[in-house]
């Protein structure tokens, strides 16, 4: 069974951490993954850096620019991930924009993901209808779960379509924003969380965007299965390096 699906069956709220591969240093990938698992994180999103990350705010964009300057490429990332399954069990998801994957070759990319032990993909600019029409069979062939985003503006009808195409979890964007731009959740956002909860979707939801500490984590997971931290972690490693990743994670998990 796919490691993501297995994890989703566990009876507690899940914490996912995003990091940009190649940041702060080109060779930090393995250490970050190993330490995140040790610290008790539930799954990891590995950001494949892109020159023009439309859906991301300044923090992730800057980390991507730096990672590319450091020499990160798709090929390099796969080299770094080769053998990672001998070290960790944690579900691994690659989050990347569609163009680098298209240039690598979508099937080759999927095949490579399977061979290094990647469990799922998040490709924000691959729309659900294009995926459904052209790529779903391919992803499934290589055992990859594809994760779609929904936002407060996504209609119920479309959410139901996304739910029907998904087979893992749904990435629930907390607000109308790019990554890293919100400060806490207001009444409006909670109503949205509840609305989605009430739709009784077959896939659990993991909340992303705007989660940075234990308080926001708790708010986000009141109705959802888990939450994803990205920009706040990038800021942390930018400032503190990768030597003490566990204190960041402990800090988030303090209240849970």
């Amino acid at each position: 069974m796919n490691r993501i699906k297995q994890k989703l069956q566990e009876d507690h709220k899940l914490l996912s951490i995003y990091f940009t591969a190649g940041f702060p240093n080109i060779d930090d990938t393995e250490k970050i993954i190993v330490d995140l698992e040790k610290s008790g994180v539930d799954f990891i999103e590995i950001g494949l850096p892109f020159s023009d990350p439309l859906a991301d705010g300044p923090t992730i964009q800057e980390s991507s620019t730096k990672a590319l300057k450091n020499g990160m490429t798709t090929k390099k990332l796969f080299e770094q991930l080769d053998g990672i399954r001998e070290k960790v069990e944690i579900p691994l998801i690659i989050m990347g924009y569609f163009n680098p994957i298209l240039q690598y070759g979508v099937e080759d990319f999927c095949k490579k993901c399977q061979s290094v032990g990647i469990d799922g993909l998040i490709i924000p600019d691959l729309p659900v209808d294009v995926y459904h029409e052209k790529y779903q069979k391919l992803f499934e062939k290589y055992g990859l779960i594809n994760v779609f985003l929904i936002t407060p503006q996504t209609s119920d009808e479309r959410i139901k379509f996304i739910d029907s195409v998904s087979d893992g979890f749904i990435y629930m964007v907390s607000s109308a924003s790019v990554t890293g731009s919100t400060t806490g959740f207001g009444e409006e956002t909670r109503k949205y969380f509840k609305r989605i909860n009430d739709l009784q979707l077959k896939n659990p939801q993991i909340v992303g965007f705007g989660i940075k500490d234990s308080e926001t984590f708790d708010q986000a997971t009141e109705y959802a299965k888990g939450a994803i931290i990205g920009s706040a972690f990038i800021k942390y490693v930018d400032k503190n390096g990768v030597s003490d990743i566990s204190s960041f994670v402990q800090n988030v998990k303090a209240l849970t």
Partner: peptide, 11 residues
């Protein structure tokens, strides 16, 4: 052509 956009832009 097409519309390869993040879901946030879809509406």
């Amino acid at each position: 052509g097409g519309a390869y956009i993040p879901e946030m832009l879809y509406p």
